[in-house]
Design a protein around this nucleic acid. Structure first.
Length: 416
RNA sequence: GUGGGCGUAGCUCAGCUGGUAGAGCUCCUGGUUGUGGUCCAGGCGGUCGUGGGUUCGAGUCCCAUCGCUCACCCCA
């Protein structure tokens, strides 16, 4: 049996209402704040991600679906949304639009990871980007919008973690300082932490090992090393969030797997999820546009995982679709009756009714049973070319009328 | 890439220490000489993930393999 590829899944009809709700909320919340929807290609030049996301990141190193386009160019199924949006911003000269440019998207992304709860190889993200605004208001606004979306969806047990990374130079210097500190205390660290000192020293902050924790308590924090302007920007963001009554915690150990972040970094987690507890997060990327060949332009954005939001949100009962009319025939083999039934269904739809034609040739008993399950209000049973029975399924009353009068009778009957 | 758990009808599952497959739901037909929602009866539907092995005999034991799932890692 051919199955969906590992880490992918079918969005079945029963799954649609919850997704549609998310899309509706995103459209309303972001649209009201002046964000326009954008859709970029599912694949891009590999170089876009190598340069944008960063050569050294896990995403670029081992998680990209890359392929040759047949002409010697390397393309990659997009693993994230910010770099493509920035590429589109540059390509279409959006810097000439009134700043800032505010965009949102709801798209699927691809990463070659081992799947688990809340983590797929093709997954969906809703994301928002503000390009061309450097002040802390943009940061705070974006955070508040994501919070509103999560609240609107009923995502439970959320926490907001906040940090500032400063500038890449600050971060580089800090990283060297931290590595040096860890090396000096190497014999007190857990082996797996020790082996990652050069690779990812920040992970040492997450360790549960007692010895490591003791060492980390005295370790230098990036937030303490921020340049004055960056510290001021961060204080500005915090002041706005405080004033808005948004609860958050400062987490100096917050790390994200993309190299382009500067200054503000944030992440919402939910304890309703499994190991993949992040529902959405983002940060500022003031160097990215320039790095991709545009004019130096500040930017900030977030992305939230659709699957994770849905996992952490209450399950939606599938609302039954309304069916006004099911059209069937009294005698399965009557061709004239079938022709009239076809015409009645068509006429009903043109009149704005939700009308279905019985298509499988079931017995009349079965057709009525079917209508009952569909929650159809009326069933039209076509006798022959001229007459039909119109049955009201709520009460069971039924009367005979001309086939051409069925739709009019329903419209009369359902008028309130 | 690594580790744990699990793979029996479309779905949810049963099948004791090995004796050559079952239930409920769904679906279809009939009970109603065309008329639903309850009820009753019948029917459709399974190479027991796959391939080897042990055995007179394997869904049941052993090995391998594939898939799903959770976790590590990382992230949405």
């Amino acid at each position: 049996m051919i199955q969906a590829p590992k880490g992918t899944y079918d969005v079945l009809p029963a799954d649609q209402p919850a997704r549609r709700l998310l899309e509706t909320h995103a459209q309303r919340i972001l649209g009201a704040a002046g964000y326009s929807r954008i859709e970029t290609p599912a694949f891009e030049a590999t170089e876009l991600f190598a340069r944008g996301v960063g050569e050294a990141t896990d995403i670029v190193q081992k998680e990209m679906y890359s392929f040759d386009d047949g002409g010697g160019r390397s393309l990659t199924l997009r693993p994230e949304g910010t770099a493509p949006v920035c590429r589109a911003y540059i390509e279409h000269g959006m810097h000439k639009l009134p700043a800032p440019v505010k965009l949102w998207y709801l798209s699927s992304f691809f990463r070659a990871e081992n799947p688990q709860r809340g983590r797929y190889r093709q997954f969906w993200q809703v994301g928002a980007e503000v390009i061309g605004a450097a002040g802390p208001e943009a940061d705070a606004e974006l955070i508040v919008l994501l919070l509103e979306l999560l609240e609107e969806m009923g995502v439970s047990g959320t926490r907001l973690r906040l940090a500032s990374l400063g500038q890449p130079e600050t971060r580089g210097a800090y990283r060297a300082e931290l590595s040096e500190y860890l090396r000096a205390h190497a014999d007190e660290l857990a082996p797996e932490v020790r082996s990652r000192i050069e690779l990812n020293p920040m992970r040492a902050f997450d360790s549960n090992d007692p010895g490591t924790r003791a060492v980390m308590a005295g370790a230098p924090k990036l937030i303490e090393r921020l340049a004055p302007e960056d510290a001021e920007h961060f204080a500005g963001v915090r002041a706005l969030l405080d004033a808005a009554g948004v609860r958050y915690e400062i987490d100096p150990t917050l790390v994200r797997g993309l190299d382009y972040y500067t200054r503000t970094l944030f992440e919402f987690t939910s304890d309703a999820l499994g190991a993949q507890s992040g529902v959405g997060g983002g940060g500022r990327y003031d160097r990215l546009i320039e790095q991709l060949g545009g004019q130096a332009t500040p930017g900030i954005g977030w992305a939230a995982g659709v699957e994770r939001i849905l996992l952490a949100a209450p399950v939606m009962p599938a609302a039954a679709e309304l069916v006004d009319l099911l059209v069937t025939v009294a005698e399965r083999d009557s061709r004239p009756a079938r022709a009239v039934a076809f015409e009645i269904a068509r006429e009903a739809r043109r009149a704005g009714l939700a009308a279905q034609l019985e298509l499988t040739g079931r017995s009349l008993k079965s057709a009525l049973k079917h209508a009952d399950r569909l929650k159809a209000r009326y069933v039209a049973i076509v006798n022959d070319a001229d007459t039909a029975q119109l049955r009201d399924m709520t009460g069971g009353q039924q009367h005979e009328l001309a086939g051409g009068a069925v739709v009019a009778a329903i419209l009369r009957g359902s008028r309130l």
